[in-house]
Amino acid sequence: MRIFGKVRHRPSASWRQATDRAFTLIGDGRYEDAGALLTRAADMEPWLSESWFNLALLHKFRHDWEQARAAGLRAVALLEREAGAPDWWNVGIAATALQDWPLARRAWQAYGLKVPREPRDQRDPDAPEGLGEPSGMNLGSAAVRLSPEGEAEVVWGRRIDPARMEIQSIPLPSSGRRWGEVVLHDGVPHGERVTAAGPTYPVFDEIELWAPSPVPTWVVLLEAASEEDRDALERLAADAGFAAEDWSSSVRLLCRSCSESRMPSDEGDGPAHPDPHDHSVPGHPGPLGHMTNGGAGTGWVPERECGLAAPATLVRGLLDGWVADSPDTREWRDLEEVC
């Protein structure tokens, strides 16, 4: 088949059958069987970029980053368009997982993203520019779904680059994740969060933990006479370089279908408590498909369950200092490290 002077081969029926069957197996979690079929498909049609894209995708699902990088590079070598292909995005994810920064930069640029040049290392004047870890891409805030195949939880974070996010919510202990950790995430959003002011934020799925946090997660019961008392603890923790989050009002329950859809979210850019983050449960937990803990609209309840992200040497001092600022309206008890 000739298009604009270029010969383009259509994949054979056998290639299509093997590929379709492989993706059915991937959906069932049978990665080994799918890999055998996709390898056979690549042997049948090695000139098709799709053959290697599919293999790169499978290796990404398996977190086999060396193989994902190798297959991804074969896919992009066969591309007919210069920019914007998802093949390059998969190469970028694999390169980021491997900390292959020159390739990650090349991948994001080939996809069509602007990657700021890295300054030369002042300690090594002969070091080339633009080969270090991508930074300064200004991708803003987004949400990430932790443990997407299990007891999923959507939390808020700051995008470091197209494949990594630093967690800025305090995840629930069931997620096994901590405030400040960096997770590798996929490139296709599954859901959106829409704020009242208008901005819409994508929800990406976590692939794996990229950088752990040394800061433990604590749960504590507060007696806070007013929202201002609660907000004071969150400011105190933030001023110390750590975090506090009122889980009684910041966590809502969503079924998976709602979590992966376009959902409204409260504003979270001010100094007060952050946007609600979502904990997935089977079925619809409320008549509207979601429920906010703490009963929005029912009036202030002084007893609050609060998550704290702070070192063991600091956490009690933060709480005691918070109480000392207004002992008549604040108390804490039952502090426990949970993650």
Rank of each mutant, 00 (worst) to 15 (best):
R2S: 08
F4M: 13
V7A: 13
R8Y: 15
H9R: 14
R10T: 10
S14W: 08
W15T: 01
Q17M: 12
T19W: 03
R21D: 12
G29P: 03
E32W: 09
P46C: 10
W47T: 14
S49E: 14
H59I: 01
D64C: 10
D64S: 15
W65D: 02
E66D: 15
A68V: 02
A83W: 08
P86V: 11
A95W: 02
A97G: 06
L103W: 01
R105G: 03
G112P: 02
E118M: 10
R120W: 04
D121E: 11
D126K: 14
P128K: 05
G130T: 05
G132I: 04
G132D: 10
N138G: 07
L139G: 01
A142K: 00
M165N: 02
H185Y: 07
V188S: 12
E192F: 12
E192T: 11
T195C: 05
A196H: 06
P199C: 03
P199L: 03
Y201E: 00
D205N: 14
W210D: 10
E223W: 15
A225R: 13
G241I: 10
F242C: 10
A243P: 03
D246R: 04
D246A: 11
W247K: 04
S257I: 10
S257T: 13
C258Y: 01
S259N: 12
S261T: 08
P264T: 10
P271E: 13
H273K: 07
D278C: 11
H284T: 07
A296Y: 15
V301K: 10
V301F: 11
E303F: 08
L308Y: 01
L314N: 00
L314V: 10
D320G: 00
D325R: 15
D328K: 14
E336M: 12
